[in-house]
Design a protein around this nucleic acid. Structure first.
Lengths: 347, 347
DNA sequence: CTGAAAGCGCTAACAC
DNA sequence: GTGTTAGCGCTTTCAG
């Protein structure tokens, strides 16, 4: 049997109430008994039982983060920010990772259990009607990251604007025909980046050409946010112009870095030099993008995570406040795949 | 106030015991009341309070994983395996990630709290005397992954053997002078890979040349397991032979893939082609290694995670069993940096 | 400054 | 099959 406050109350010749007070830094305990209790507790190796605590108080001082891990990098960066945002608060972070999109609901169920945590961070979790219902039923504070819903606080990146910036960058570099590689149809980021692509074309007074756009086949894993899906999509794109090389796009915007890696491989296999024969811009700025010199749109992941926890704390303090929505603008990072300078790794 | 079993007992006209039984799938409840209770619970949006449960039973059905996240990939893969190993068990996984080595102790402290979880998975956490003491004091089951200690179940990879395989691969390719790039001195993986390097040299009847070995400066972050540290180390190595090109190593074993990426960059900047002027072998096989075509030693991360949870469950069942230690052998994956074929991304 | 006692929500004998 | 009841370990009035 583990040691409880009763044990240390006995040993220290005080009541359990006093022991509890000592551990909760209650002001009115004599310095003397304070020290005595601490010593006894230390000696006996006392650890408070978190379950009992959360039963008696009405809170856990815990925040749950539910995350489908598509790219581990994005995930980790957001989490890093979240940890940071919780620093100096009484809250600790608990992570419920899921490798599959379906797994998310199971993890959500766990995180939603009463007494698990006081707040919930949903990262890249689409607010489906069913989930929205469950989230509204909980008494936990909820913040959405990388997706939005009017009923909850949220933090997103303006994918559409990012898509536009990406394509404008390519147009500025003189490209007449710019291709687009997308994940499977129907994803929020995919659709928005597509819209941004069209925005840029429209702003430049160009007609969209459906031949220049390739979506991943529906059967791909992870909604097509994979290296393989990007690889195949690039192959499809190049195939379309195999018999009319003059029409071939000289630049491609790929809706996700991870897809861009596969696309780059396919381009190399087709004998195209990047840049030169083909310019490539990605989206996300995962860590490998720097290694590979991929021009891309950087998402402020750490900042998003941090802001998320700040919103969470605010909501915990004031549950009735109206939901707030923050939209970050992604930042274009020019690297080698669009002729940028190679950069040495920095500390 | 959230709804409790009392509320639903009232509504369903049964006692709280019955409600509890229903939720715990106790066999002796009439099908009738079963359904009634479920319906009422559903309607009222009942969620059991985990704290109360863990107080009343004596377990949480939770397993904590404490992980310093150096490379997010290794981390995620191990976790994926761990999740898988828990599938079909009553246990759920809770993650306590830490971006810094010092943060690990704080996370460990949280995970160690009584009532948090029943078991503990420590991934890449060095069992310092202080930690060992804390771990021995806990009543939770403990399994070490990627490190070992005689007192606990453990799963490791044979770094030394891997180092040997890496260098033997280079020697077989005809290299006379093989360099070695290490993290800061004193890390377990670094020391072991160094030993493997020496093993391979000895087996080939060669004298070690200290000029061929570079350790990262002590001031590097993350014990030198960074791209930047690898970049600098390669520069140092090449500088040493700037005035005697004939002596320059024609191949380098880098103790970690992440360092190898920086090293590759430095090699390119120095005008060396890889392979050709220089062969490179890494260690770890993170995801970017496949993109970059880096030959490396693959660690069976998923398997390690899975086995870890299996050991954990075994120990939970039989706390008295003697600790078991499993050592995996890393597998050489030959890619382009040692002349292997380029490979297309696979599904 | 300290103690007694009433819960917090749930489980598990123990009765019937 | 179902209800009663005694905890599980801790916090928090309420007295003193």
């Amino acid at each position: 049997m583990a040691v409880t406050i009763y044990d240390i109350a006995d040993e220290a010749h005080v009541s359990i109430a006093t022991v509890s007070r000592v551990f909760n830094e209650h002001p009115r305990v004599s310095e003397d008994t304070r020290r005595r209790v601490f010593r006894v507790a230390e000696r006996m190796g006392y650890e408070p039982h978190t379950g009992a605590q959360s039963l008696a108080r009405k809170g856990t001082n815990l925040v749950s983060a539910v995350v489908p891990v598509m790219t581990s990098f994005f995930f980790m960066e957001v989490l890093r920010g979240a940890q940071g945002g919780l620093d100096g608060s009484p809250y600790d972070l608990l992570v419920y990772p899921s490798r599959t999109f379906s797994g998310v609901d199971a993890q959500l169920g766990r995180a939603l259990q009463r007494g698990r945590s006081d707040g919930l961070l949903l990262v890249s979790v689409r607010p489906t009607p069913d989930r929205v219902r469950r989230l509204q039923a909980t008494s936990q504070a909820v913040v959405l990251v990388d997706d939005a819903h009017e009923a909850f606080d949220s933090i997103t990146v303006d994918s559409r604007w990012g898509g536009r910036v990406a394509v404008e960058h390519l147009i500025e570099r003189g490209h007449e025909r710019v291709g687009l590689l997308l994940p499977v149809p129907g994803t929020t980021p995919g659709d928005e980046r597509l819209a941004g692509y069209h925005d840029a074309l429209a702003a430049a007074g160009r007609e969209p050409d459906p031949d220049l756009v390739v979506s991943a086949d529906w059967h791909h894993d992870l909604q097509g946010f994979t290296r393989f899906a990007g690889y195949r999509a690039m192959q499809v794109l190049l195939d379309r112009f195999a018999d009319r090389p003059a029409q071939r796009p000289t630049a491609v915007f790929v809706a996700a870095d991870i897809m861009a890696f596969g696309a780059l491989r396919a381009a190399h296999e087709a004998g195209l030099r990047v840049p030169g024969d083909l310019d490539v811009v990605g989206f996300d700025d995962v860590d490998a993008s720097a290694y590979l010199g991929l021009t891309t749109l950087h998402q402020p992941m750490v900042e998003m995570g941090q802001l998320a926890t700040e919103k969470l704390r605010r909501r915990l303090d004031d549950p009735g406040a109206p939901p707030s929505h923050t939209v970050f603008a992604p930042r274009l990072v020019v690297r080698e795949t669009t002729g940028g300078a190679a950069t040495a790794p920095s500390a």
